[in-house]
Every structure is written in C-alpha cells, then in structure tokens.
Design a protein around this nucleic acid. Structure first.
Lengths: 207, 207
DNA sequence: TTTTATTGATTGATCAGTCAATCAAAAATA
DNA sequence: TATTTTTGATTGACTGATCAATCAATAAAA
C-alpha cells in the first residue's frame, strides 16, 4: 500500500497546489484530494514539508524524463536545442496549474533550503542541456552567454504566462525562443568578424 | 500621524517580506519592524491583505518613477530601450530582498485578483515601454515580437537571480538583454529581405 | 499472533482581527 | 487664560478560527 498511497498523495498535492496557486494548502486538502485521512498523510511523510519536497521532486523527475526522451529523438545539435525548447513549453508544463505550482515552489525556495536545491538543479540542467549543443555550434564563450540568455527567456516566458493576461501561447513562446537562438547563432557563427567584434564581445563582463 | 504610520508600515512590510522571502509574515512581524503595535496596523489598513496590496502598489510606484526619470534622460529610441533595460536591473530592483518580494507577489497573484491586476500593469508597462521605441526602429509586427521577447528575458533573468546560484550579476544581465536587442535589430532592420524571410517570419503563429 | 494500514479525536501553537481602555493633543467654551 | 470637550493615536488583552502534528484505537492482512 505504501507506494500507492505515497504516489496518490504526491499527485494530489500537485493538483491542490496548482489549483490553489500556493503552498499554503492544508494537509487536509491534500489528503481529501487523495481520498485518505490527513493522519495517513502524516504517517507516510512525517511532515507537510517532506510531502512538499517529494512533490517538487516528482515535478522535476517528470520534466527530466520528458527531456531525455526528446533529446534522444533529435539528431543534430540544432535539433536538440529545439527539442529542449519544445519540452519546456510542452502542454503539460504550460498548463496554468503546473505553472502555478512551479511559481509556488520558486517562492518557497526563498525559505526552504531543500526546495531551493531542487530548483537550482532544474536551472542548471536547462542551462547545461542548452550549453552542450551550443558548444557544437559556437565558441565556448558565446555558447555560455547564449545558453544563459535562452534559459532566461524560457523562464521569463513561463513566468509571464502565470499572469494570464494576454497569454502568449505555446507556439508563440517556442517561436520567440527560436528567434533568439536563430538571431544569435546567425550573429556569432557565419561571420565571426562581425559577430565577435560588435555584438557578442566588447561587454563590461569581458574585461 | 496617519501618513507617517502608513508609510512606515508599508516600508516595514516590504522589508520583512523580502527578508522572510514570503508573504506568510505576521502582522506582528511587520508591526514590530515598524515599531508599532499589531493593533495599529489593523487600525490603519483594516486587514493584512490591504496592507499587502499597498505594499505592492508602493513597489510598483517606485519602479515607475525610476523608469520615467530614466526615459526622460534618454534622447534616441535606442537609448530609451537601453534605459528601460537599465532600470529593470537597477541595484535597488536587483537586491535579493526586492527580488524575493516580487517573487512572493507573483505567487500571491495566483490567488489574489487585486495583486494579479498590479502585476499585469507592471507587465504591460514594461512591454509597452519597449514597444514604443521599437516601433520607431522596426515594422510593427517585428517590434511587437521583440518587445515580448525582451520583456520575457528581463523577467527571466530576474527570476533566475532569485535562486542565488551562479548569480548572473547586474552588468551581465544588462549585456545579455542588450545582446538580444542588438542581434534582433540587426537581423530585422538593415536587410529586411533576409530578416523577414528567414528568421522573423515563417513561424507557425504567422499562419 | 504480529505487523501494517487507517482513522477519529485531540492538542498545542499560531494568527488575524476585535475591543475597550488609555493618553495626548487640539478645539471649543467659559 | 483656564477649563472642558472632542478627536485621534495607541495599545494590551482577548477571541475565534485554523492547522500541523500526535496518539490511541480499530481493522485487516500476513
């Protein structure tokens, strides 16, 4: 029973948090959603905090397995970059409840060291997935900057989506991120003289 | 006394929220920080929610006045774009406590309609500040997309900063956003044939 | 019988919000 | 000017609700 209940509770937590848009949900809410008593939730997880930790861990695991699958299907570095982008904006990830849950965990990360660690893992993974393939197309320095920029744009489109005003939409979000990559790849790669000299380098941080 | 106390309480709320990294701070915490009794906070604001609303309003007011000042100092459209970027990453805005506070309000916006309204105002302002000057440099369609992308990148750099791992830094954040603008301006403007045909248009959303 | 699953009932802590009571300053009255 | 009245500022003490966490008891399975 234990694994069944644990999964049910984690799934329930994710749903309740997404609906409510906040981690200030009660153990009772979660337990009710999972169809068990609050006491049972405590029995299996020990504390609310621990259940929340497992919940974000599950969110991350899902994203990771989606990413791995998408990367395996892609052949060229450029196609792998597109795959990473596509996964980030996959319908599941882009559902309002999922966005709300991610946002709630970002906020929680300000206080919970363990939650922060998980989000840092996410951020690093996204960056390094992008970086690995960018390095096949660009000098290391430029690749690092563009990976940083693309990761930021993905997160930014994501967070803006959470406001639900003028929703940008999945396709448009992907297109914006692709535009960014295309433009900076074109800028830095085919004619290094121009790209290196005027746009990419020559910034304060390059001192 | 009333205006003095109101300001002290709003400032205290901002500080406490920033330090604590969450809106789940008590009225007592805020009142203590402001050096008054919790009862007085209720007396002036009626409810915690109302005090919180005033707090985000104050955050927004500050950002707006900074932006207006920066825009007035800039002369060309391109300079105004840089000014908007610079204000977004101004040291005050980039302080960890300020970022934590913004993040907390983003999360709160999932539940509080009024909080959401304020954040939508922020998002719209940022977008339209960028758009106004981009339109002077580009066709409307391209300008809109780039404004959206730049706004997303700014917000994304901001939220990534909140994780405090591998902090990107003010200068590097500005540089990344400038790179984005430079690359897409170069791409779309000087040779419309190429830009329009390959990078900017020809996306699913343009169907 | 022993172990595991499950819950209802309860506890203890935390907080938002209320209220009646002070205190002080200003305004009105003598 | 001196006195009384009114008004606003301020608080300590309290209340009611909420909730995480506990625990002893029961049911079911091994």
């Amino acid at each position: 029973m234990e694994p069944v209940r644990r999964k049910a509770l984690v799934d329930a937590a994710l749903r309740v948090i997404g609906d409510h848009g906040s981690l200030t949900v009660t153990m009772s809410d979660i337990a009710r959603q999972a169809g068990v008593s609050p006491a049972l939730a405590h029995h299996y997880f020990g504390s609310k905090e621990q259940l929340l930790i497992e919940t974000i861990r599950s969110l991350l695991r899902q994203l990771r397995s989606d990413t791995v699958a998408a990367l395996q299907a892609a052949r060229t570095p450029r196609a792998r970059l597109s795959a990473v982008i596509r996964v980030s904006f996959h319908a599941d990830q882009f559902a309002p409840e999922t966005i709300a849950a991610w946002l709630a965990f970002y906020a929680e990360a300000q206080r919970s060291e363990e939650t922060r660690r998980f989000l840092v893992i996410y951020a690093r993974r996204l960056r390094s997935n992008l970086l690995a393939d960018l390095k096949a197309l660009l000098p290391a320095g430029a690749a690092e900057r563009i990976a940083e920029g693309a990761a930021a744009m993905i997160d930014g489109l994501y967070i803006r989506q959470s406001l639900k005003s003028a929703p940008i939409g999945i396709e448009a979000s992907i297109a914006l991120t692709e535009d960014y990559l295309n433009a900076l790849l074109a800028d830095a790669s085919p004619s290094p003289q121009r790209g290196e000299g005027t746009t990419i380098s020559n910034h304060p941080r390059d001192k």
